[in-house]
Design a protein around this nucleic acid. Structure first.
Lengths: 305, 305
DNA sequence: CTCGTTATACTCACATTGAGCATAACCATG
DNA sequence: CATGGTTATGCTCAATGTGAGTATAACGAG
C-alpha cells in the first residue's frame, strides 16, 4: 500500500516594528495546517484561512515561497508516517496583536548572523570558529579546500563579499557544520560542543524562515513591497529603518533619501511629525503610480547589488 | 469521504538553439508525472527521474518554479476527481535529441507576443484589438478604467513601458480577455471570434510555461544562469543571441560586449572561430570565479532594469 | 541661548550606461 | 587580387547614477 501524502500550508508572516523585523510564530512553529482539499479553493486562500484561525490576522500582501517535500525532512519521524509536503507562503503585514498562542518573535533571534547593523561581530565570534572546525574535519586536499571556499563565499570570510540574499545558503551551511541545534536534534545526538547562541524551531521551520528572509531581501530591491510593512504615511527615516531592518545592514541616510525621492517612489504630504527630539520630519506616502512609470521600482541596499 | 490528493511533478525544460528559445514538450503537455511518495527522495529527484523516463534527458541546472494547486485548475475535470497539485521545476540545458514522443518546440509559438525582436508588431496587430474589445465589454466607469489601465501597463500600451518579466501577467490577461484558446476550452465554448495566432497546450501547461519564462528573464539579470544554455566555449555574439532569445529583445552589441568583458563574466580562450562569413570571433568561456568576486553577476537586458 | 538630535540640502569624484562612429578581418565574387 | 558584404572589435562622448562627505535647518531639553 502506498504511503499516504499530507499537504500542509505554512505561513511566514513578517512585520517590522521599532527597526526590528518580526516573525509570527505559534510556539516553536510557524502558522501551519493541512490543506483542505475539498474546500480550499486555492492554496493561498487555504493559507489565509489557517492564519485567521490560528492567529486571528488578516493578511495583505502574500506570495508563494517554496514547496518543501524532501523525504527526510523530519529524520526522526516514525516509520510509516505519511509523506509530508509543505507549501510555504510569505506574507507582509503591519504588526498587530495576534490571538493567544501566536506571538511575534524577533527574526534575528533565529538568524543572528544575518544582522550586521552596528558591526555586530557575530559571524567572527560565533560562526567562524564553527566553520573552521568543520573545515579541519574534512580530509586534507580537495574536499577541505572546497569547504574552505564554500565557507568563505557563503559567510563573506577572507575578504569575500557578503551577499545579503544568501540567507538560506548560510543557514544550510551552519546546519551542516553543526552550528545550529536542529542539526544535532535531527541526528538524535547531543551537541558535541557549545553552539552559537540562536533560537531553534521545530521541524524545519527555521529553514523555511531562512528561505523567506532571503527571498524578501531580494524582492525589495526590485519591487516596492517594503510599503506593505509601513503605515500609510511615514517619515523617510522610518522607511530607511525598515529597509535596514530587513537588509540587516546600515544605509547612507542622505543617499537613501536621494534615491527614494528621485525615483518617485514616494511623495510628501506636507504633514510633519513632532516630538522626536530633533527636527520634525515630513511624512510621505507611497506613490502607487510608480508602478506604471517604472515597472521594477525597488530599494537597493548595499550587498544586494 | 475526503477528496483524494494527487501530487505531480512538472518540468519546464529550456534550451536555446539558433537564437530561438525552445521548450521540451510531450505532445501538448510538459513532461509530467506523479510524485512517487515512497521512492522519490526529493521532489527535484523525482522530477529528474520523470524527465529521464519520458525524454531520456539528463538535466543540469534545475530550480523549483512554483506549485500550482487551484481547485479549478481544470474546470472540465469530472466530478470527484482528486485534487491535483503540480510542483513545477525549471531546468536549463543545451539542446539534445529527446526520446520519441518528446520534442522541442519554439517557445514563441506558445507566447508570440513575448518576442519583440525585429519590431514584431504582434501586440499591436493581434493583442491590442482583443484587449480593446475586453475593455469595451466592461460597464463604463471605474471598472472599464481599471481594465484600460491594466491592459496598458501589462502590455506596454499607450506609452507605458514594456516589462519583459511580466510574462505571466500577460498570459493571464490574454486568458481573461479571451485571447487564447484555453480560455474558451475551459468555459466549454467555441471561440466567439478569431483568436490571435498562438499554440495552445493541454491543461494549464501554457500558464506554467509563462511562469517559467518570466522567472527566467528575471533570473538572468542577477545570476549567470545563461551559461547553462551555452557550450563550454562560445563567441560573444553567440552569448548575445542567447540572451536576446530569452529576453525577446535586441541589445546594443558593443555595449553588451563591454558589459560582459568588464564584469569579468567571461575570459577569452585565444581560439577563434572561422567560416562565419565575417571576421573570425574569439571564443570565450564562463569564468566561474566571478561568483566569488561579485555574488550577483548577471546580464541585464533593456526593459528588465 | 546653547547643545544634542534628527532632518534635509548640496557637492564632488567616480562608475555605469546608452548611443554612435570607426576600424579590422574574414568570405565570395568578378 | 581588388571590392564589397558581413561579422567582430575598439573607442568616444554625453548623460545618468552612486558613494562618500560637508553643511545647514529645526526641534526639545537644560
Amino acid at each position: 500500500m502506498p504511503t499516504t501524502l499530507l499537504v500542509s500550508l505554512d505561513a511566514v508572516i513578517v512585520a517590522v516594528t521599532d527597526a526590528a523585523p518580526r516573525l509570527l510564530t505559534v510556539g516553536d512553529a510557524l502558522p501551519s495546517g493541512p490543506l483542505d482539499a475539498n474546500a480550499d479553493e486555492t492554496l493561498e486562500k487555504g493559507m489565509r484561512r489557517l492564519v485567521t484561525e490560528q492567529a486571528g490576522l488578516d493578511l495583505g500582501y502574500v506570495e508563494q515561497l517554496y514547496t518543501f517535500g524532501d523525504l527526510r525532512r523530519s529524520p526522526r519521524a516514525p516509520r510509516g508516517a505519511p509523506r509530508h509536503l509543505s507549501v510555504a507562503y510569505l506574507a507582509l503585514i503591519k504588526e498587530d496583536a495576534p490571538l493567544a498562542g501566536a506571538s511575534w518573535r524577533d527574526w534575528y533571534e533565529l538568524l543572528p548572523w544575518e544582522d550586521r547593523r552596528g558591526r555586530a561581530p557575530y559571524v567572527d565570534r560565533h560562526i567562524a570558529p564553527v566553520l573552521r572546525r568543520w573545515i579541519q574535519e574534512a580530509p586534507a586536499g580537495r574536499t577541505r579546500e572546497a569547504r574552505r571556499l564554500r565557507a568563505a563565499t557563503t559567510f563573506g570570510l577572507d575578504g569575500a563579499p557578503w551577499d545579503g540574499v544568501k540567507v538560506l545558503e548560510r543557514y544550510e551551511l551552519a546546519y551542516e557544520a553543526g552550528g545550529v541545534a536542529e542539526a544535532w536534534r535531527d541526528r538524535g545526538a547531543e551537541p558535541a560542543r557549545a553552539l552559537p547562541p540562536s533560537r531553534a524551531m521545530a521541524a524545519d521551520y527555521r529553514r523555511i524562515a531562512a528561505t523567506a528572509l532571503g527571498r524578501l531581501r531580494g524582492k525589495i530591491t526590485y519591487r516596492p513591497v517594503i510599503f506593505e510593512l509601513l503605515p500609510d504615511t511615514f517619515t523617510l527615516s522610518g522607511l530607511q529603518q525598515t529597509v535596514e531592518a530587513l537588509g540587516g545592514a546600515e544605509l547612507h541616510t542622505q543617499n537613501f533619501r536621494r534615491l527614494v525621492e528621485r525615483t518617485g517612489l514616494v511623495e510628501g504630504t506636507g504633514e510633519r511629525t513632532t516630538g522626536t527630539g530633533g527636527r520634525p520630519a515630513e511624512r510621505f506616502r507611497f506613490r502607487r503610480e510608480v508602478l506604471l512609470e517604472r515597472p521594477r521600482a525597488g530599494l537597493g541596499h548595499p550587498g544586494a547589488a
